[in-house]
């Protein structure tokens, strides 16, 4: 990536997974690293159970908080099948960070549609870099399943080249005192995942 090129990250998942908190942490990190940054999200109907997405874009000067389809550099999917929903937004050389946790949509629960099979291999066949792991299980090892979003940020930090100290400093500021240790550990486990 050239310094003046805007980089675009797409956060996607299901309401209640801590997606907007994660994209907030990323934005703050990029701002403290000296970049211009814009992010977009939609509130309101994004209740628990609905799809939630957030675009984060950073670079020397960012105009649009939304990326054009076909230009996302990194997709970070908080749920396994959700990754498939947003592939048209990805550039051909995009990287994908995939939480392999499965959350059934209502139509799958009612037996009207199947949960897609073999998602990881499908993604690996089409994209050069697919990093897949169960972030919920890793977060549980760190102390709470709720820290899965920060585990995923740890994996994301491997791809952004931003000083880890800046990430960790922002994480410290983003949680109440009693949750800091847990989230820093979740972040480390995400880096190693």
């Amino acid at each position: 990536m050239k310094d003046n090129k805007v980089k675009s990250i797409l956060f996607a998942g299901v309401g209640g997974q801590g997606i907007l908190r994660a994209s907030d942490i990323m934005c703050q990190t990029m701002m403290e690293a000296g970049f211009d940054v814009k992010k977009s999200e939609v509130h309101g109907m994004a209740q628990r159970g609905g799809c939630v997405t957030s675009h984060v874009r950073y670079g020397a000067r960012v105009y649009s908080p939304l990326a054009a389809s076909g230009t996302i550099d990194i997709l970070i999917s908080f749920e396994k099948m959700e990754a498939l929903r947003y592939l048209k937004f990805l550039s051909h050389d995009a990287s994908i960070i995939l939480n392999t946790e499965e959350i059934n949509p209502p139509a799958v629960n009612m037996g009207e549609l199947p949960y897609p099979a073999d998602i990881i291999n499908f993604l690996k066949n089409h994209y050069a870099k697919v990093i897949a792991f169960n972030a919920a299980e890793i977060a549980q090892q760190a102390g709470s399943i709720k820290a899965a979003n920060v585990v995923l940020l740890g994996a994301l930090s491997n791809l952004t080249g931003i000083d880890r100290a800046i990430w960790e400093n922002v994480i410290k500021k983003s949680f109440p005192q009693k949750l800091i240790k847990l989230n820093l550990e979740a972040f480390q486990k995400g880096i190693a995942a």
């Binding site: 299901v14 309401g15 109907m45 994004a46 209740q47 628990r48 159970g49 609905g50 799809c51 054009a68 389809s69 076909g70 230009t71 099948m81 498939l84 929903r85 592939l87 048209k88 937004f89 990805l90 550039s91 051909h92 949509p105 209502p106 139509a107 799958v108 009207e112 549609l113 949960y115 897609p116 499908f122 089409h126």
Partner: peptide, 16 residues
């Protein structure tokens, strides 16, 4: 724009 390589119908997640 870019076209998704995934062609199957995905179950929607309407807000609930």
């Amino acid at each position: 724009g870019s076209v998704s390589p995934y062609k199957e119908t995905l179950a929607l997640r309407p807000p609930n």
